[in-house]
Design a protein around this nucleic acid. Sequence first.
DNA 1: GTTGAAAGCTTCAAGAC
DNA 2: GTCTTGAAGCTTTCAAC
Lengths: 168, 168
Amino acid sequence: MPDTGLPHAPPVPPPGRELDETDRRILRLLQDDATLSIAEIADRVGLSQSPCWKRIQRLEATGVIMRRVALVAPERVGLGLTVYVAVETADHSAQWLADFTERISALPEVVELHRMAGDVDYLLRVVVADMAAYDAFYRRLIDGLALKKVTSRFVMERLKATTALPIP
Amino acid sequence: MPDTGLPHAPPVPPPGRELDETDRRILRLLQDDATLSIAEIADRVGLSQSPCWKRIQRLEATGVIMRRVALVAPERVGLGLTVYVAVETADHSAQWLADFTERISALPEVVELHRMAGDVDYLLRVVVADMAAYDAFYRRLIDGLALKKVTSRFVMERLKATTALPIP
DNA sequence: GTTGAAAGCTTCAAGAC
DNA sequence: GTCTTGAAGCTTTCAAC
């Protein structure tokens, strides 16, 4: 093969293509309802139980299925306020960023932390009880951190929220 | 009680306080790992199986536990790109907003749709395969919609992502 | 890939405290 | 509210095709 100087094809599985259509059908079912029995799933994807069970085992062992969880309604446990926090950092040294990441990840109110491209460096999704709780969180967040800009955007209404990925 | 003119206390369950500490411990366990057996949960919260099972049934029946799902690793199913899209709408009539909401919710790539307070009207979380797929999605998104401003922010790295709420 | 079957758990209802 | 008991059903493994 000629060396084009371009990046190589990934050394390992072409994303999403180590899975056949049956695997993807199983995933679509399970990410919608993880209480389905093997019998039910096998039936719906047109397999018998044993091979279906083996496929699910493999999907779990290889990390395609990361975990099975219960989704809790936030407002039912007194967590009525979700806030997206866009952070622009002042310091961009590797050490500072590592510290920042570790420290922010440790905050339980932060359920998601993303490093972003573009104007915003980090985007946080924060879940708290109410505005007073958010204020307390915010003070803890900025305390001692050199942040250039912090923009809080408050969720008024959750119109759609699913953990089910649009598996093609 | 004197009428202060301030908003009343909510007429129904004080958020999160219809649940006792045992319920909350069960929720913390299940939102971390929904494969735990009743026996295991009962053991950890200090109950025997039946009352533990009844509590879980009640939490599901009353919608505190919304569902049980499998979480799939996006990059393992070829969905390597997550984008947050901030939308400012041009039209704010009720009819327009209803149409907008319905239309956006129907797009499978949109896994979350929030109505926001402040400068941004809507925040979308979009999951796609790659930049080409996002471009195709973006064209469909803006096609025929009067949007004042659309800002796409691309996730470079997922540093933390949990569906487990910080139940106090 | 398939079927069928057996062992061991888990779930859930019933009845008592 | 809690506990114990027991039946039914499910998961998991295995043998055989």
